[in-house]
Amino acid sequence: MALTLDDVARLAKLARLAPSPAQQATLLSQLNGFFEHVEAMRAVDTRGVAPLYTPLSAVQEVQLRLREDAVTEVDQRELNQRSAPSVEDGLYLVPKVIE
């Protein structure tokens, strides 16, 4: 099943990208080209196979390591905001947020 220009536009919006109509057309053909390569994979029978979300779980039980509940961070606001595009009174500024 091939994608349409509408799909490309929808995906771009979701990803907060705004390709030009020309770019969208190119992307459409490239994406459809890509998903042709992928079709072979969809045919494989994977019933009863558990997904491998993290590699080592192929050979051992991998479980989440937990942190003790302790405050280990100090205030580094100045350092952290060194590369910020727009800051005032320690706040990051963005165009009005409308809820």
Partner: peptide
């Protein structure tokens, strides 16, 4: 599907 095949490959 890809993550399942990933296990088969592993």
């Amino acid at each position: 599907q890809a993550q399942k095949l990933r296990r088969m490959i592993a």
